[in-house]
Design a binder for these strands. Structure first.
Length: 277
DNA sequence: AGCCAGGACAAGT
DNA sequence: ACTTGTCATGGC
C-alpha cells in the first residue's frame, strides 16, 4: 500500500569516495545494518532508506526525488568533494596510510539530537552494546515507520519520562544523562539549532551544560551532528595516536578538516592490526 | 573469569 | 589545573 503522495523509487547518483561498509561501520553512526541481500538499511530524519554502492554509483532505494534533495544529498554530504579533501590530508604520512586503509569513509551529516544522544550513550561503552541500547530506545519510544522500523525518539517525547521508564534500555548510569539532555533540549535551555553558527568554544560550553556531555561527546555532537568538520573528538584511540605519532601536536594546516582526518585515523587505529598501536 | 569499552563526574590533591 | 575512583552493563 502506498501511503505517500509520491511513489517511492530508486535514485542513482554518481559519487566517488563512498564505501558503505566503511561509512556505516567506522563508528560514527549506529542505525545502519547490512541486509542479507547485500544492501544497507538505515533510519535517519524519520525515514527508512536502503543503500547500495557499486562502481561509482550510489543507489538509494525506497525514497523520492524530493527527499533526496531535501534530506539524503545533505546527509551523505554529496556536494563535498572528498577526493580533494583527501588529497590535502595525504600531506601527512600517517593520515595518508589511514586513508589508503579505508578510502571510502565519509562523515555523515546526522541530526544533532540523535548524534548527541548516541554519543552520550557511547561513553565508557562498546559499539555493539551502543547499537543495542539505541535500538531499544527507538523501539520503545520512537514513532513507527514503514517496514516495522522506528524513528529516533524526539527530545520532547523523552523529556516526559523518568528513570524507571528507561530501565528496559539497560543503559546503566547513562539513563539520567539521556533524561537531562531531553529536558534541557525540550525546554529550550540548550538550543541545538543555534550550535551551527556559534564559535566552537561557545558551542562546546553550551553542550556541556548537559549532564553526561563532556569535551568528547560535545565534539562528536558538533562533528557528526552539526557538520563541524574542524571539530576533532579525542577518545582513547585518538589519544594513543596523538601521543605516539604527534608529540608536537596535530598539523595546524590540516585543522580545517581535522574531524575528517580524525575519522580516518580512528578507524585505522581501531581496525588495522598493523597500525602499530 | 576477567578485562575493557568512541567518558564524565565528583572528590581529592 | 591535574589525578583518581566510580559509575551499569555486557561483549569478547
Amino acid at each position: 500500500m502506498v501511503t505517500d503522495q509520491t511513489y517511492k523509487q530508486t535514485m542513482l547518483i554518481p559519487v566517488g569516495d563512498f564505501d558503505p561498509d566503511s561509512v556505516f561501520n567506522c563508528g560514527q553512526c549506529f542505525r545502519w545494518n547490512l541486509q542479507p541481500d547485500g544492501s544497507w538499511k538505515g533510519i535517519a530524519y524519520n525515514r527508512v532508506l536502503s543503500v547500495r554502492y557499486r562502481e561509482g554509483i550510489l543507489a538509494l532505494a525506497g525514497t523520492t526525488p524530493e527527499d533526496f534533495e531535501e534530506i539524503w544529498s545533505d546527509y551523505f554530504d554529496l556536494k563535498t568533494d572528498y577526493g580533494k579533501i583527501k588529497q590535502r590530508l595525504c600531506s601527512d604520512p600517517l593520515i595518508a596510510r589511514s586513508i589508503r586503509y579505508a578510502p571510502g569513509i565519509r562523515i555523515l551529516r546526522q541530526e544533532t539530537w540523535e548524534a548527541m544522544c548516541s554519543f552520550i550513550i557511547s561513553q565508557n561503552n562498546n559499539i555493539p552494546r551502543i547499537r543495542g541500547i539505541i535500538l531499544r530506545l527507538c523501539e520503545l519510544f520512537g514513532d513507527r515507520l514503514d517496514g516495522g522500523e522506528y524513528a529516533f525518539p524526539s527530545a520532547a517525547r523523552l523529556s516526559m519520562l523518568d528513570e524507571n521508564d528507561l530501565e528496559p534500555l539497560r543503559s546503566g548510569f547513562r539513563a539520567r544523562y539521556i533524561l537531562d539532555a531531553a529536558r534541557k533540549v525540550a525546554s529550550g535551555e540548550v538550543r541545538l539549532a543555534a550550535l551551527r553558527d556559534m564559535p566552537l568554544p561557545q558551542a562546546r560550553e553550551e553542550l556541556q551544560k548537559i549532564k553526561g556531555v563532556g569535551p568528547k561527546v560535545a565534539d562528536c555532537t558538533l562533528l557528526f551532528g552539526c557538520g563541524r568538520m574542524d571539530c576533532f573528538p579525542v577518545d582513547v584511540w585518538i589519544r594513543k595516536v596523538l601521543e605516539r605519532f604527534y608529540p608536537n601536536g596535530f598539523p595546524e594546516e590540516l585543522a580545517e578538516y581535522g574531524g575528517i582526518a580524525q575519522q580516518y585515523l580512528f578507524h585505522y587505529a581501531r581496525c588495522c592490526p598493523e597500525c602499530g598501536l
